[in-house]
Design a protein around this nucleic acid. Structure first.
Length: 579
RNA sequence: GCGUUCGUAGCUCAGCUGGAUAGAGCGACGGACUUCGAAUCCGUAGGUCGCAGGUUCGACUCCUGUCGGACGCACCA
C-alpha cells in the first residue's frame, strides 16, 4: 500500500506538480471480484479529475512506476486492469506473516479502541417475569458487542439496569397475595423466575373475576412507595426469586455483568438535576406545576420531567442514572442496548443531557434493535405467544441431543447433554446475530432447529472438523510427521484463498467495533466456515504424499481453528472440538 | 397527522466509508460417501435491488418525492 502511494505521489509530481497526492491510509482499497485479478484493487476514478487523465491511463502509468520501485517486487506485483491498479501480493511472505500472527497472543485483536472506556447497558429485565426471546436478542447483542469492543482494546463495563419497581411488579405481587398461599418455587418445583411469572400471568386472569383489581395494584404501589413493611418484604422476596432465576439464565447462556443497578435505588436520582436545570432556565414550570422541557426547536416535542406532584418519571431516572454513571466511572462512550421502540426516548434523553451541559452526552449511543417476530405474528404476553428463553433452549438442546444420537456420535462427544446445550446456544446466538440489529427479524423455530445451511451448528461443525484433523495429527497419523512447514508450499490458489480469509479476521473485528455491529463478525464466521469446508474437501492434509505440504497445511488448519475459536467467542457461539 | 426505521431471488438474510459480472442459506431440480466426520460438498434454475426523479465518470449504497410494512408520538416503564 505504501508502495502504491509512493508511485502515485511520483505520478502526481510529474503531472500536477505541487498537488498533494493521497497518503497510503487514504487510498481506497477493495478486493477484486475474481482472485485471478489480484488480491488488492485500487480504483483510479477519483484520481482522474485531478490528474486530467483517464483512470485506465493512470493505472497503466502506475503499473510502470511500481515496477520501477526496487523494493516493490518483494511485496508483490502491480498490474493495471482497466481503471484499476490491482496488486497480487507475493504469497510466501504474506503466508508466513499470517501464520505467525495467528500464533501470537491475542490473534485478531486490535488497538483501535485502546485506552477507551466503554459502558454497555443491556438486558435490563423486569422482575415480574422470566426472560423471553426478545431478551435473548438483546443479551447476545450486548454481550457480543462488549466482547468485540474489548477485543479492540477498550476497557468495557457491562451494566444491567434491573427494573424492580413499578406497577407491573405490584401486579405479580398482588396475584401472589391472593392465590399464592405462601408457597415457594421449591413447593411447586418451578425455576424461581418462572414461579414469579406464573403469578404475573395469573393477574391477567384475575382481572376477569375482579374488575377493580387494577385499582388494588395501584394501591399496592402507593403502599410500596410509603415503605410499608409487609409490602416491602414480599417485594424483596419475589424480586429475589425473579432475579436469581434470571441470573441462572445468564449463566446458562454465557452472559455476565460487571454491575447491577436496581431501579428501586436509582428511580429518584434525576430530580436534583431537573431542579438545577429549572433554575438555569433550561426547563420550565408549566401552569399545572409540572416541570417540562421544550425540545421543539430540534424537532422533538415538549416532555414532562417531573409530575405536577413533584415525583419523578422514567426519563428523570435515566437522566440521573446517566450522570451518576459518568461521575463514578468516566467513560468515552455509553451504549444502551434497548429495543427500537424506545428510539424517541433516547433522542430526548441525549438532548436533555446535552442541554444540561454535559460534554459526554454526545458520546451516548442507542444500539437499537428490531423486534423478533414469529411466523405466526408478534409475540404478545397476553395472548400467551411469548417464547420463553429457558423453554426455547431446553427444546433446542433436546433436538441437538436427538441429532447426535441419530448420527450415533454419543461416544465421540463425551458429555452428551453439555454438547447438546452448546449446539443449542450456537444455533440460537448465530441466528439472532446474523441479522443486522436495526432490522426486525423473523424467528423461525423450525429453521433454527434444522441445523442445516447458514446456521450456528454448521459453523460449529466446521470448527469441529478442523479440530478433528489436528487431533489426528497429534496422534501421529499423517505424512506431516516427516515434513517441515514451509509457507511457499501454500502458494496454490486454493490454499492462498483460505489464507486470505484467515487474514481478513482482524479487519472484521475492527469494522464490527467501529460500527458497533456484531453481525459483521457473525457473517465473517460463516464465510470462513464455507471456505474451509470447500477447501478441505479437495485438499488433503494428513494424507498428502508431499510431507512438507502436509505439514504446511496442518499449520493452516491450526490457524483456521484458532480463528474459528476466537470469532466464535466474540459472537457467543460455543466452540466445540467434537459434535 | 408528525417522527424514526425497514423494503435486495418463492422464503430468511448478506452486500465494506458510492465503484469492476448484486451474493449466501432454505425450498426446487440434478450429482458426490471402500479416501482427514456427508450436521458436508458440487452443479442448474431463480433478481428491471418497492416505484419515480436527482447528484455523480459511476448509485443496491447518497438526496428528494412516493407507495408498503414496523415502531413511536403518556405526568407507563
Amino acid at each position: 500500500m505504501a508502495i502504491v502511494a509512493q508511485a502515485l505521489a511520483a505520478e502526481f509530481e510529474a503531472r500536477v506538480p505541487g498537488q498533494p497526492a493521497p497518503k497510503a491510509d487514504e487510498l481506497v482499497v477493495e478486493t477484486p471480484p475474481d482472485p485471478a485479478m489480484g488480491d488488492l484493487g485500487f480504483p483510479m476514478f477519483a484520481m482522474a479529475k485531478v490528474l486530467r487523465a483517464g483512470p485506465a491511463q493512470i493505472a497503466k502509468a502506475l503499473e510502470a512506476r511500481v515496477a520501477a520501485i526496487p523494493e516493490a517486487s518483494a511485496l508483490g506485483q502491480a498490474k493495471a486492469v482497466g481503471p484499476y491498479l490491482n496488486v497480487s501480493l507475493a504469497r510466501a511472505p504474506e503466508i508466513a506473516r499470517v501464520l505467525a500472527a495467528v500464533r501470537s497472543p491475542g490473534w485478531g485483536q486490535g488497538t483501535s479502541l485502546a485506552g477507551k472506556r466503554v459502558m454497555v447497558e443491556f438486558s435490563s429485565p423486569n422482575t415480574n417475569k422470566p426472560l423471553h426471546l426478545g431478551h435473548l436478542r438483546n443479551n447476545v447483542l450486548g454481550e457480543s458487542v462488549s466482547r468485540i469492543l474489548a477485543a479492540e482494546g477498550a476497557e468495557v463495563r457491562k451494566v444491567n439496569h434491573i427494573n424492580d419497581r413499578g406497577i407491573h411488579i405490584c401486579k405479580s405481587m398482588l396475584a401472589y397475595m391472593k392465590k399464592g398461599e405462601g408457597r415457594t418455587p421449591e413447593d411447586e418445583g418451578l425455576k424461581s423466575d418462572h414461579f414469579v411469572g406464573k403469578y404475573y400471568v395469573l393477574f391477567g386472569e384475575l382481572k376477569a373475576e375482579a374488575k377493580d383489581i387494577e385499582a388494588e395494584a395501584q394501591e399496592l404501589l402507593v403502599q410500596w412507595e410509603a415503605g410499608e413493611t409487609a409490602v416491602r418484604e414480599l417485594w424483596k422476596r419475589m424480586n429475589e426469586w425473579a432475579v436469581s432465576g434470571i441470573k441462572k439464565t445468564y449463566a446458562r447462556t454465557g452472559k455476565g455483568f460487571d454491575l447491577y443497578d436496581y431501579e428501586s435505588d436509582t428511580y429518584e436520582l434525576g430530580r436534583r438535576f431537573v431542579h438545577e436545570g429549572l433554575a438555569k432556565g433550561i426547563f420550565f414550570k408549566a401552569e399545572d406545576g409540572s416541570v417540562q422541557v421544550d425540545l421543539e426547536d430540534v424537532g422533538l416535542d415538549k416532555k414532562v420531567l417531573l409530575r405536577k406532584d413533584g415525583t419523578s418519571i422514567y426519563i428523570t431516572q435515566d437522566i440521573g442514572t446517566a450522570i451518576e454513571r459518568h461521575e463514578s466511572w468516566p467513560h468515552d462512550k455509553l451504549i444502551y442496548v434497548v429495543a427500537s421502540e424506545q428510539q424517541y426516548h433516547f433522542k430526548v434523553l441525549f438532548e436533555i443531557l446535552k442541554r444540561l451541559g454535559f460534554e459526554w452526552a454526545r458520546d451516548l449511543h442507542h444500539l437499537s434493535y428490531g423486534l423478533v417476530n414469529l411466523p405466526s405474528g408478534r409475540m404478545k404476553t397476553r395472548e400467551g405467544t411469548v417464547v420463553d428463553a429457558d423453554d426455547l433452549i431446553d427444546e433446542l438442546s433436546r433436538l441437538a441431543v436427538a441429532e447426535i444420537e441419530a448420527k450415533g456420535r454419543e461416544d465421540s462427544v463425551g458429555d452428551l447433554a453439555g454438547v447438546g446445550e452448546k449446539i443449542a446456544l450456537g444455533a440460537l446466538h448465530y441466528y439472532l446475530l446474523q441479522t443486522a440489529p436495526a432490522k426486525d427479524m423473523l424467528y423461525d423455530p423450525e429453521a433454527s432447529l434444522s441445523f442445516n445451511g447458514d446456521t450456528g451448528p454448521y459453523i460449529q461443525y466446521m470448527g469441529a472438523r478442523a479440530s478433528s484433523i489436528i487431533r489426528k495429527a497429534n496422534k501421529g497419523e499423517g505424512t506431516h510427521v516427516n515434513g517441515t512447514p514451509r509457507p511457499a508450499k501454500l502458494e496454490s490458489d486454493a490454499d492462498w484463498a483460505l489464507v486470505r480469509r484467515v487474514a481478513a479476521f482482524p479487519g472484521a473485528i475492527e469494522a464490527a467495533a467501529a460500527k458497533v455491529d456484531s453481525s459483521i463478525v457473525a457473517n465473517y464466521l460463516h464465510d470462513l466456515a464455507q471456505d474451509f469446508s470447500t477447501w478441505y474437501r479437495d485438499n488433503p492434509v494428513l494424507a498428502n504424499p508431499d510431507a512438507d505440504l502436509a505439514a504446511s497445511r496442518l499449520e493452516l488448519v491450526i490457524a483456521v481453528r484458532a480463528t474459528f475459536a476466537a470469532a466464535a467467542r466474540l459472537t457467543c457461539i460455543p466452540f466445540l472440538d467434537a459434535m
